[in-house]
Every structure is written in C-alpha cells, then in structure tokens.
Simulated scan of single mutants.
Amino acid sequence: MFSIEHEFDSTVVTLVDEGTAPLQEDVVVNGFEECITVEQYDPRTDRMNKITFSISQMRDLAAALSLPEGVYLRRADDDQSS
C-alpha cells in the first residue's frame, strides 16, 4: 500500500509494507525540486535513517531497475524524455 501527498515544496510518497510478518517499517520518499530523500525508521537504533539522491542519481536508479547486470552511462538526451 502507498499514499501520495503534495506538500508546499515537495511530493511525499509513503510505502507501507503489507503481508505476512516480518514486515519492514514504512518508507517515506520526499521529492523536492533539487533532490529526493528516502527515510525509514530503524527500531534497533531508534533512529530515522535518511538517504539523499540527486535528481540524476534517481534517474539512474529508475533506469537500473529494468536493466541486466553491467555498467551503464545515461546520455544527456535521456534526461529530457522524462
């Protein structure tokens, strides 16, 4: 399950793990104009972990999800198609 909320300066997507145990904590993705952050609570350390991706890194990740093993370089014109 997931939810999408549009805030003043970002779009927030929350991914909720469903199914049989063990379940993972919610993942919160914040899409800002200049970057994307991914946050998840870690109950072992009682801390929220955050990773920040540049827009270019997120485009690389999106492309990588559907490609086989290897090393790739996105072309500049690939960015303009999204």
Score class of each variant (00 low, 15 high):
residue 51 I to A: 09
residue 72 Y to L: 05
residue 11 T to R: 10
residue 59 R to Y: 10
residue 33 E to P: 02
residue 58 M to H: 06
residue 75 R to P: 01
residue 19 G to K: 10
residue 32 F to H: 13
residue 22 P to H: 07
residue 49 N to L: 14
residue 11 T to H: 08
residue 77 D to V: 07
residue 39 E to W: 02
residue 72 Y to V: 06
residue 57 Q to Y: 03
residue 66 S to D: 14
residue 52 T to E: 11
residue 73 L to E: 12
residue 40 Q to I: 02
residue 20 T to D: 15
residue 82 S to Q: 13
residue 61 L to Y: 06
residue 27 V to A: 05
residue 59 R to M: 14
residue 60 D to S: 08
residue 42 D to R: 07
residue 9 D to E: 13
residue 65 L to Y: 05
residue 18 E to V: 12
residue 52 T to R: 15
residue 33 E to S: 14
residue 78 D to P: 03
residue 9 D to M: 07
residue 61 L to D: 03
residue 27 V to F: 06
residue 66 S to E: 14
residue 17 D to V: 01
residue 10 S to T: 09
residue 52 T to L: 05
residue 39 E to F: 02
residue 81 S to L: 14
residue 72 Y to A: 06
residue 35 C to T: 05
residue 75 R to F: 10
residue 48 M to N: 10
residue 69 E to Y: 12
residue 67 L to I: 07
residue 35 C to Q: 08
residue 20 T to H: 13
residue 35 C to F: 11
residue 10 S to N: 14
residue 20 T to S: 12
residue 65 L to T: 11
residue 27 V to Q: 05
residue 39 E to A: 03
residue 59 R to V: 13
residue 69 E to N: 15
residue 55 I to D: 00
residue 71 V to I: 10
residue 81 S to G: 08
residue 65 L to M: 15
residue 70 G to F: 00
residue 10 S to L: 08
residue 66 S to N: 12
residue 7 E to M: 12
residue 26 D to G: 02
residue 78 D to H: 09
residue 54 S to V: 04
residue 6 H to L: 09
residue 21 A to P: 13
residue 30 N to S: 14
residue 2 F to D: 09
residue 45 T to N: 03
residue 11 T to N: 08
